[in-house]
Design a protein around this nucleic acid. Structure first.
Length: 259
DNA sequence: ATGTCATATTTGATATGA
């Protein structure tokens, strides 16, 4: 079973590319970030036509997350990250589907830092950790995947010096990410390719794609039970080079059936 | 070269977020 994540950077602008990717790679579950539409504008009928049922949490102008499943409708467990009633950003959607807990996140970017946006990012990461601890305590097969907006190590960026002041690789951001791993969550891509050099994002600016100036910020964190069933994982890098591409490439994991 | 792109309002131009 393939579970994928794709920050599509606008579902309206990206719909042809998105449908193409779904039909060509046919993930059982697809988690989308930055749909950048209100709930009313979500093109659910387009996905139904090719056999995907969707749940989504939209927001006007930016953010927004959705989960698509092949031939079945995901059951929503939690919409919106718990822990702060004043936070109305659409960045978190947690479902049960195919006997798996699947959590789709669009973690705050945090730039510029320091500042209120960086504070929001760090607070969001602590709230995420609290929720992930609850999920782990449930002992269900679970994956928390999406755009974490964190470059975990210097091996995950084309030039650490070029990004040194960026919120994505500040020590506070990295420490918060490492605490998730310390809690027992397993970074699928990092485990399979510990040498680094795997990118999931290339900026639109400065010819970053052509120069392969990328970094790894889209991650899939597996519960121990699901990690034992990890068959393969990777990045659909080719899609970053297509016409009207997102600035992110899709990330996927392949899970073996439970015994 | 702070070099691109998507969305929205302030709408054929600028602000915001990334």
């Amino acid at each position: 079973m393939r579970i994928a994540s794709f920050n599509i950077n606008g579902i309206k602008a990206r719909l042809p590319r998105l449908l193409e990717w779904l039909e060509e790679t046919r993930p059982a579950v697809a988690c989308l970030q930055e749909i950048k539409t209100q709930d009313e504008g979500f093109p659910a009928a387009e996905f139904e036509k090719i056999g995907y049922h969707a749940v989504w949490h939209g927001q006007k102008g930016f953010n927004g997350v959705a989960i698509l499943a092949d031939g079945t409708t995901p059951q929503v467990v939690q919409q919106g990250l718990p822990g702060d009633p004043t936070d109305d950003h659409a960045r978190y959607l947690e479902v049960d589907v195919f006997d798996t807990r699947i959590v789709n996140i669009y973690l705050p970017n945090g730039n510029p830092q320091p500042g209120p946006k960086f504070d929001y990012k760090l607070a969001w990461m602590e709230r995420l950790r609290a929720r992930m601890q609850e999920i782990m305590a449930e002992e269900v097969p679970a994956v928390v995947l999406g755009d974490y907006n964190v470059i975990p190590t210097d091996r995950d960026v084309w030039a650490p010096a070029a990004m040194a002041d960026d919120a994505l690789m500040q020590p506070e951001s990295r420490d918060a990410y490492m605490r998730l791993l310390a809690d027992g969550w397993i970074d699928a891509i990092a485990t399979h390719q510990p040498g680094g050099g795997v990118w999931t994002f290339w900026d639109y600016q400065a010819g970053a794609w052509q120069r392969d100036h990328g970094f790894r910020i889209d991650h899939a964190l597996l519960s121990p039970e699901l990690a034992d069933r990890l068959k393969a994982c990777g990045v659909d890098k080719e899609y970053r080079g297509r016409e009207k591409a997102s600035d992110h490439a899709p990330v996927w994991i392949e899970i073996k059936p439970a015994d």
